[in-house]
Simulated scan of single mutants.
Amino acid sequence: MSIAQFKSIEEAAIAGVKSIAETCIKSRTVRRLIYTGTVFAASPLKDDGCGYKDYIDETCWTPFQNLHLPLTPFHKDYAYSKTLAERELLTSYGKDENGSGGFEVVSLVLGLVGGETPLSYLPGSVAVITSQLQDNEALYQSLKFLEDICGKCPIVHIDDVCEAHIFCAELPSINGRFLVANSYASSAEIANYYSQNYPEFNLKEKYLEGPNRAIKLASTKLIDNGFVYKYNLKKILDDSIRCARRTGDLSMS
């Protein structure tokens, strides 16, 4: 399947998840499909695009018809395609609320993934988390875009992401949409942590101020099923810096 055969990225994304799901059905051996999604599809913006809900959880979907945000073509295509693809998978192939129809589809809606990794290069998500320390405007705009979409920045450690996938694969039964993030911070809160704990980077003052919206992280579905997060925001940020230093992408001013 080549993206060139489709009219848009959105069409290609939907075709991709449909192809995977249909293959699972044809195999007659797959009873659970675990899909890795993104919080770019889980905005707490109100349906009319004016203001935010008081919370972010699994019931939130990004309202693109009334999305009044200054989106770059890349950000728009990414968020829109991921939203449509996830909706297609859950509505067309997953079991309903009563457990009928389809097969078990688990959608893990990931926050911005940080932490240290065994990779020899800096992962894109870690680059976004450390963008203020790098004074990288393009990466910082991705952080701000996430903040504008989600009210604040939902963040999770890569180790917790891996454990969440294993957890959902090993449970006797699980189905539906789960937000995978245990930290929810504004870009200014992230910058202030860096400024207070890593003064050697001489963080620019322009990063220290910004909106601090009164929106709560209200997702407990994964925890209610027995999952335990091991890494808090401090550890995520510290490990992200350690990763960026190791790969040579972050050096002191």
Rank of each mutant, 00 (worst) to 15 (best):
N192Y: 01
K76V: 00
S240P: 00
Y52G: 07
D96T: 07
A13G: 02
S100H: 12
Y55P: 00
N182A: 05
S27A: 15
D47Q: 14
I158S: 04
V109G: 00
R177G: 08
E86K: 04
P63I: 11
K18Q: 13
I236S: 04
L146A: 11
G151C: 09
A244L: 01
G115K: 02
L112F: 04
S253Q: 08
S27W: 09
G226C: 14
V228Q: 13
F227Y: 15
A79F: 09
L90M: 15
G51V: 14
A4F: 09
Q5K: 06
N225A: 11
G99I: 02
L139C: 05
L143T: 12
V106I: 10
E209F: 10
A127Q: 10
P73H: 09
W61N: 06
E86G: 09
E22V: 09
K76F: 15
W61C: 07
I241V: 15
T130W: 02
A214L: 01
D148L: 11
C60F: 06
F74I: 05
K204G: 09
S240D: 08
Y52Q: 06
D160C: 10
L233G: 04
E58D: 15
V228Y: 03
P199Q: 11
C162S: 15
S173R: 13
A4I: 03
C150K: 00
Y198S: 02
S27R: 13
D135V: 11
P172V: 01
C162K: 12
P199Y: 11
P118V: 11
G115L: 09
R245H: 03
V39W: 01
